[in-house]
Write a protein that binds this DNA or RNA. Structure first.
Lengths: 344, 344
DNA sequence: CTGAAAGCGCTTACAG
DNA sequence: CTGAAAGCGCTTACAG
């Protein structure tokens, strides 16, 4: 496998019989290129298997055509889906993506120093960090455009989920069923200022709405655990030691709800009757497990954030915008919906 | 805060009263620069707050001065520590680091395509992937140097931990105590070919050595769970339902061992007597919890991998090397070692 | 040991 | 609409 040198803009220009300036113009979607010329250049690129050298573009143009995404080092499906959404629109815009999993705050600071890669990019998407806690004034030490996702700030464009509303919907829904109301409180062990509050918000919404429905939760009806399926198992054990079925459980997250399902099965409790459990997130796998869940359009949130960042990069200067997303309750077998007949 | 343009090599040259070529030479540690000249240039850089533009270096020199690290999107302390070790030596060598959390195989392939950032780097460190499963022939589609860490391959330099030995040591140690021998099997849910086998290896080593010691494990003495502290709690519950104390438990990972400790406390079992539990990893926090553990020099493994990669980048062409690291048994209160008196 | 110059692969006014 | 040329901030033979 002999590696011939990558073709450059010059070879493309020669083959398309134009100047290199023109090639550069089609590369950058410059409007003033005749359609006929453009397609000739495009054909030459295709033919040669040409792709522009990003480093050269950065030196010459002062732009990097890449965007940094900073997210907590927390390997949940949420971030996988979020990245999927973000990268989808960025790659379409021919932008590259550099992901920076933040393992600690010292890392954030290093990343933002001028000589590192992260700083050399054209914009920044930060996920799940409360900036006002990280920096006085809530302003990052960068002059590049910034968009927050799964977080809010008066200073930057932000895209966030209304987790409290999700908790509300959960309580209103579960309160309709016979039996006790229960909730699982997920402890967030993220250190430092990288604290997240999503689970706390969901639970608050749940407790508020439960009280409004005349069904306030006592402490025995809330079980605290870390984020794991096994935590859901422990929770159901705990509730079973307190009272008889049926149990109507708001798990706070799909993963936890999965554990509740597993433990219910181990005790031969009837799911959807003795135990009703409601997750949160709407992970793809909940469908096959028949798990009811408050679905989040995570990919859409990511895409939205990416689009707003592109607008900023392209020069938009308006005041910071905040886009709120709402979770949707999806009923399935785990809260009693009959399993639909299989229709081929 | 007015942003003045970053100083370039020209300004440094002028201030140091040398040519730009000389500045470049000290930047690259070229040997033929007089010591007096070098320090004059260094002083000018310091003075101006100069740092080289990495993109320009990449275009001009054809090198990127950055290394890609690919690792599974699994947020355990193991990877935090590994990165710490890798970045330590890389940053010292003035190399930048791009981290690529691999969320799926399709991502790996995209990353390795020629136009993306990952491909533009001078070398690649891959953590925890079994290459032979990912690619036929176990060879990555890149001509850059590659080093594997927490993995092995006949084709590339690799740095790995002898997990089986750790299991052995655990069994030999725990078999000395009165009471039954137990183990926790951690299920690895990593999808696709991104499968990991570390936990399986630890357990195999444990079971082999237990059998050799005349104490083979029956199926009731092994509990299967996902990677979570709550899994450790369930495990102890399970063992308690099988037999009376004492229990000598090999947890397979510190996080799981933590759950065992928590559950033991909840049942007022005496830790170090009724329950002896041994973790794996040697996480920093095990010290304060008095958890005995098989410690892994994770940072050292990372550093070793980084050094080997730098050698390759600098032109070393020898046959692939494999460096094996060994875990060390660290005794603490959780296996009965008396808590040491506090010495101020 | 060191300077001047050519060159890396692009972008972008400047003229036409 | 498009070409020729200057320039981005470096590296690296080439001469001294």
């Amino acid at each position: 496998m002999v590696h011939k040198r990558k073709p450059t803009i010059h070879e493309v220009a020669r083959m398309a019989e134009v100047g290199i300036g023109t090639v550069s113009r089609v590369l950058n979607n410059h409007p003033s290129v005749r359609e006929e010329t453009r397609s000739r250049v495009l054909a030459a690129m295709e033919n040669l298997g040409y792709s522009p050298n990003p480093h050269a573009r950065r030196v010459a143009g002062g732009k990097s055509y890449t965007v940094s995404i900073m997210l907590p080092f927390v390997a949940t499906e949420f971030y996988t889906r979020l990245l999927e959404g973000i990268e989808g629109v960025l790659l379409e815009e021919r932008y590259d993506v550099a992901v920076f999993p933040l393992l600690s705050q010292s890392r954030l600071e290093r990343y933002l120093k001028s000589h590192t890669l992260a700083y050399q990019t054209d914009g920044l998407i930060m996920a799940s960090f409360d900036l006002s806690e990280l920096y006085p004034g809530g302003q990052l030490p960068t002059d590049r455009p910034v968009v927050l996702v799964d977080a809010k700030s008066p200073r930057y464009d932000s895209v966030y989920m209304d987790n409290r509303l999700g908790g509300h919907l959960a309580a209103e829904y579960l309160a309709r069923f016979p039996g006790g109301l229960y909730a699982i409180k997920v402890e967030e062990e993220i250190d430092l200022a990288l604290s997240q509050t999503v689970f706390a918000e969901r639970l608050e919404g749940f407790c508020d709405a439960a009280a409004e429905a005349g069904r306030p939760l006592r402490s025995g009806q809330v079980f605290k655990t870390r984020f794991s399926a096994e935590g859901g198992r422990l929770a159901l054990q705990h509730f079973m030691a307190q009272a008889e079925p049926p149990y109507n459980i708001f798990a706070g997250a799909d993963l936890i709800a999965l554990g509740v399902l597993e433990e219910a099965e181990a005790h031969s409790l009837r799911i959807g009757q003795d135990v009703r459990v409601l997750g949160f997130d709407g992970q793809p796998w909940t469908a096959t497990r028949g798990l009811s869940s408050l679905t989040q359009p995570v990919e859409a949130m990511g895409a939205q954030a990416a689009r707003m960042l592109m607008e900023r990069i392209h020069g938009y200067r308006g005041t910071p915008r905040a886009i709120r997303f709402e979770p949707t309750l999806l009923e399935r077998a785990s809260t009693g919906l009959p399993t639909p007949a299989y229709i081929p």
